[in-house]
Amino acid sequence: MSSVLDVQLFISVFVTLFVIMDPPGTVPLFLALTGSMTRQQRKRAARQAILVAFGVIVGFALFGQSLLNYLHVSVQALQAAGGLLLLLVAMELLTGKMDSNEGLEGTQGNVALVPLGTPLLAGPGAIVATMVFVQQSSEVTDWVALGLGVVLVHLCLWLSMRFAGAIHRVLKDSGTMLVSRIAGLLLAAIAVQLLADAVLTFAREV
C-alpha cells in the first residue's frame, strides 16, 4: 500500500481539507442558499457546486502559484477578496433576499457556482492548503495521496448536500428560514475573520 500511496500524507490532506471545507457545516449554508429550489434543482445545484469546487481546487493546485505570481497578487489579497464576497452573501441571507423565488430559474446556476462552489467550498483556506501540499509533493505516491484526499473530501461534501433535502423536508419552510438567518450570521462572522486575518498579515509584512 505504501508503495502506491503515502498513507501519512493522505491522512494529512484529508483531515486538513475536511476541517477547512467542513462538510457538516455546509448543510445549513446549502439549505439557506437553495431553500426556495425544488428537489431536482437542489440536486443539480449540489452537483454543480461540487464540480466547481473540485475544478477550482485542482486548478489552483496545478497553476495557482504561477497565476498569483503573474498577476502580482498575494494569497492575502485572495483571502480578503473571498471575505468581501462572503460578506455580501451573508447580508443577503440576513435580509431575506435569498428567500425570494423571483428569478430563480435564471440564478440557480449562479448560486451553485458563486458563492456555493467558490468561495464557500473552495475558499482561500482550502486553496492555500492544497497549494502547500503540492509544494511538498515530489514522488508519485505523494501525488496519489494528494489526489485521493481531495476526491474523498469532495465526496463527503456532495453527500452532506445530497441529504440536505431530507433535512429541508423535516424543517419545512419556516425552519429553513430560521436556518437561513443563522447561517447568514455565521457566514458574516467567517467573512469578517477572513478579512481580519488578511489585514493582519498585510500589516505584519509592512
Score class of each variant (00 low, 15 high):
175 G>H: 00
65 Q>F: 05
156 C>G: 06
114 V>P: 09
95 T>R: 10
113 L>S: 13
166 A>T: 01
206 V>Q: 08
202 F>Q: 02
119 P>F: 12
7 V>T: 15
86 L>T: 08
117 G>A: 14
168 H>V: 08
108 Q>C: 11
196 A>G: 07
51 L>P: 02
125 G>S: 15
42 R>F: 04
118 T>I: 08
168 H>Y: 14
86 L>G: 00
71 L>N: 09
96 G>W: 15
110 N>R: 15
36 S>D: 08
194 L>H: 02
49 A>V: 09
25 G>C: 02
84 L>N: 02
45 A>Q: 06
186 L>S: 10
200 L>S: 08
105 E>T: 06
9 L>K: 00
166 A>G: 00
202 F>E: 05
88 L>N: 07
62 L>G: 04
16 T>F: 03
34 T>V: 05
58 V>Q: 05
16 T>Y: 02
22 D>G: 03
204 R>F: 10
201 T>G: 14
181 R>G: 07
98 M>N: 14
1 M>H: 07
47 R>C: 08
200 L>F: 12
178 L>K: 09
83 G>P: 13
52 V>G: 05
151 V>D: 12
180 S>C: 08
88 L>T: 11
33 L>E: 02
119 P>H: 13
177 M>H: 13
106 G>W: 13
163 F>D: 08
73 V>L: 03
180 S>Q: 04
147 G>I: 02
10 F>R: 01
43 K>H: 14
165 G>Y: 10
178 L>F: 15
160 S>V: 03
159 L>R: 00
185 L>N: 07
151 V>H: 12
101 N>M: 14
59 G>L: 02
34 T>G: 06
91 M>T: 11
56 V>E: 07
152 L>Q: 01
203 A>C: 14
60 F>I: 01
124 P>E: 05
74 S>I: 06
115 P>G: 01
69 N>V: 12
78 L>N: 06
18 F>I: 01
93 L>F: 03
201 T>I: 04
138 S>L: 13
197 D>G: 09
21 M>E: 04
106 G>N: 01
106 G>L: 09
47 R>L: 05
127 I>Q: 06
98 M>W: 15
116 L>Y: 00
26 T>G: 08
65 Q>W: 03
142 D>E: 00
73 V>Y: 10
65 Q>I: 10
83 G>C: 15
61 A>K: 01
169 R>M: 06
131 M>V: 01
204 R>M: 03
29 L>Q: 11
191 A>G: 04
143 W>P: 01
144 V>R: 11
80 A>G: 10
138 S>V: 15
13 V>W: 05
96 G>A: 15
76 Q>Y: 09
36 S>G: 10
123 G>Y: 01
115 P>N: 02
37 M>L: 05
66 S>D: 12
66 S>E: 14
64 G>L: 04
124 P>D: 03
198 A>S: 08
159 L>I: 03
48 Q>E: 04
42 R>L: 02
179 V>D: 10
177 M>P: 03
139 E>H: 11
57 I>R: 00
130 T>W: 05
114 V>Y: 13
8 Q>V: 15
37 M>F: 07
89 V>N: 06
